[in-house]
Design a protein around this nucleic acid. Structure first.
Length: 583
RNA sequence: GCGCCUGUAGCUCAACUGGAUAGAGUAUCGGGCUUCGAACCCGAGGGUUGCAGGUUCGAGUCCUGCCAGGCGCGCCA
């Protein structure tokens, strides 16, 4: 509808300009927007004001001239000039009624488009370290990413969802020895203190217990030596390194085969389960470790060295990221020969490019923003186009219990898990809460509020609209009536009340909302739209009776609310929220 | 100190990416169920869009400088 107006307006502008014998180098884009205010009609264009300068005439005069050149089209009732020179379009009611049969025809596909043109998109999100369960801090990225994936898919993009598993590096060693120490603790004779910087969560003990049940005869360390390390005066990080090397020498193969593997698999399984229950699915789980074992990291470093982007200093290898706009150069290979996380990340991103995606999107927590320029730099140095990579930063979700702000730390075991949140608040409300705000907004998640006032949560308001419609149809059956779609569709012109026209217009906007939310990567637009739609419905419900004696009117109204139900369901589905028939 | 994000009604947030009188929820006050679900609807009050300049037909939105908050600035990941 919008496109139709746009093209008509465009030809009118061209006619007008040629009539006035005005030549303009470049015709400005013809913009037609939904009018905010119903008094301004349905659509509005600012074209006359944009043309004011090049044409050098008052905008209102230009608007009048353009309207004169506008050809008659069926969907248009009238045009008006308003304010400083807006052209307002008033559509005929018939134009709007068309959406109802359209919704019936496309049903669950209503709102889908081919805007993305099958562009292949790789969407990476969550990617939290497999060192502990998913907590509330990760939840936002999970909800945001999964909704964005659905939006893109609905808009005709070919989306692959990926989780990058950081199963390599020092943190994994710290995780392994955390489990090991808890394991040793289960054999009474050690009586060990637990290092401050190791992982403290209960899940570590659980993993240790599982291992202990299976294998309690693994080689023992020198207890005295362990005590000496932990109680010593060295820096905490240094102590951990010493424990790691002691664990490796004591356990040999078993270090990796038993503790490392068990911890990783156990935690990763938990993460997968948590996310799946939250309605967040992935196509790939990409292992960082696999990049190392497949020599991808080494290859990348070699290539960058060959191109002169890597140099040696202080026995370490540095990537010259300052050449690409970063504030300092970055280490890729440490003095001890180990590659850094950044080195893996270069290989990972190069690998993403090599897999042939048109567009690569990363959803990162805002704390990673300092990381962007070096990754972009490394890509450029590796001969990849950095503009193909979009990094969407999601700001932190801060959890409050009343006035009290909670800190999230996996290391100290100080966090509220996503699972706990879902149990308290529910899946639907949790998802909705996370995507209600745009990603750049800092999000305050007040647990008390979410729990105690969960009925005030907009998600219930929307679901209630859906349930209410279902209820009307149940009532209809109880009264021995039947839904006659054909009669209803034939009688749509009887829908003339203000509230029902508002509802018809609302459902017409849905496809544009989806396309726009996908294009801008802004799921919250859908949340807001659905709230407004529900509001339009509730207003209609309160002002008009649906099951009326006039059968044609009754069927027409049933058609309208049935179409509305479909739109609500489609929208909620993208948000990953259920559309209940009763509640 | 440098960089990124944010600052809009008492509180939590929108504002279709530069458009018309800045809108919702919540809280407060007032009204609406003998009628399809009151988890609802209707109305009222509530604003110098952090401050000061600038750009133009037009700025919450763009630019500059301040102020405040969050987050980053490791041979951690």
């Amino acid at each position: 509808m919008k496109e139709l107006l746009q093209s008509h307006l465009k030809s009118a502008v061209e006619t007008y300009l040629s009539q006035q014998d005005i030549a303009i180098d470049k015709l400005p884009a013809i913009e037609v927007d939904h009018a905010k205010d119903a008094r301004h009609g349905d659509f509005a264009s600012n074209i006359a004001m944009v043309l004011a300068k090049p044409v050098s005439k008052p905008p209102r005069d230009i608007a009048a001239g353009i309207i004169d050149c506008l050809s008659q089209i069926a969907i248009l009732d009238k045009c008006e000039i308003a304010g400083p020179g807006f052209i307002n379009f008033f559509l005929s009611k018939d134009a709007y009624y068309q959406v109802i049969p359209e919704i019936f025809n496309s049903s669950e596909n209503y709102g889908r488009s081919n805007e993305g043109g099958s562009t292949k998109v790789l969407l990476e999100f969550v990617s939290s370290n497999p060192t502990g369960p998913i907590h509330i801090g990760h939840g936002r990225g999970a909800a945001y990413g999964s909704v964005l994936a659905k939006l893109l898919a609905a808009s005709g993009y070919d989306v692959t969802r990926e989780y990058y598993v950081n199963d390599y590096g020092r943190q994994m060693d710290i995780l392994s020895i955390s489990v090991w120490l808890r394991y040793l603790d289960m054999q009474d004779e050690h009586d060990l203190p637990f290092p401050q910087n190791a992982y403290h969560g209960q899940y570590i003990r659980d993993i240790a217990a599982t291992i202990y049940k299976d294998k309690n005869d693994l080689p023992q360390p020198d207890t005295g030596e362990l005590h000496a390390i932990i109680n010593g005066h060295a820096e905490e990080d240094k102590k951990l390194d010493e424990i790691i090397s002691l664990a490796k020498t004591t356990l040999g193969d078993n270090y990796h085969k038993v503790f490392f593997s068990h911890a990783l698999e156990d935690i990763l399984a938990g993460i997968k389960k948590d996310l799946a229950e939250f309605g967040v699915e992935f196509d790939n789980w990409f292992s960082e470790r696999s990049l190392i074992t497949r020599q991808k990291v080494a290859d990348c470093i070699a290539a960058l060295k060959a191109s002169g982007d890597i140099y040696e200093k202080d026995q370490a290898k540095w990537f010259r990221s300052t050449s690409y706009g970063d504030e300092k150069d970055r280490v890729v290979v440490r003095k001890n020969g180990q590659t850094t996380y950044f080195a893996s990340d270069i290989a990972y991103h190069v690998d993403k490019y090599n897999r042939g995606f048109d567009e690569i999107i990363n959803i990162w927590g805002a704390d990673h923003h300092g990381y962007i320029s070096r990754v972009r730099g490394a890509l450029k140095a590796s001969g990849k186009d950095p503009d193909q990579l979009k990094i969407l930063l999601v700001q932190f979700a801060t959890l409050y219990i009343g006035e009290e702000k909670l800190q999230m730390s996996t290391r100290s075991g100080d966090y509220v898990t996503l699972e706990q949140l879902r149990e308290e608040v529910g899946n639907n409300a949790t998802r909705f809460f996370y995507v209600m705000r745009k990603a750049e907004q800092h999000l305050d998640f007040d647990l008390e509020l979410a729990k105690s006032e969960s009925n005030a949560n907009p998600v219930y308001y929307i679901q209630y609209a859906h349930a209410r419609i279902c209820s009307v149809f149940k009532q209809m059956q109880e009264r021995g009536m039947a839904f006659n779609k054909d009669m209803g569709l034939d009688s749509l012109s009887l829908l003339v009340e203000e509230t029902e026209l508002a509802l018809v217009k609302a459902i017409t906007r849905y496809p544009e909302i989806i396309a726009q939310a996908a294009r801008n990567h802004e799921p919250h637009q859908l949340s807001f739209f659905l709230r407004e739609l529900a509001n339009d419905f509730h207003g209609y419900y309160n002002s008009c009776q649906f099951l009326v004696e006039d059968e044609r009117l009754c069927q027409a109204r049933l058609c309208l609310i049935s179409a509305t139900r479909q739109v609500i369901k489609n929208g909620l589905d993208i948000l990953g929220v259920t559309a209940p028939e009763e509640m």
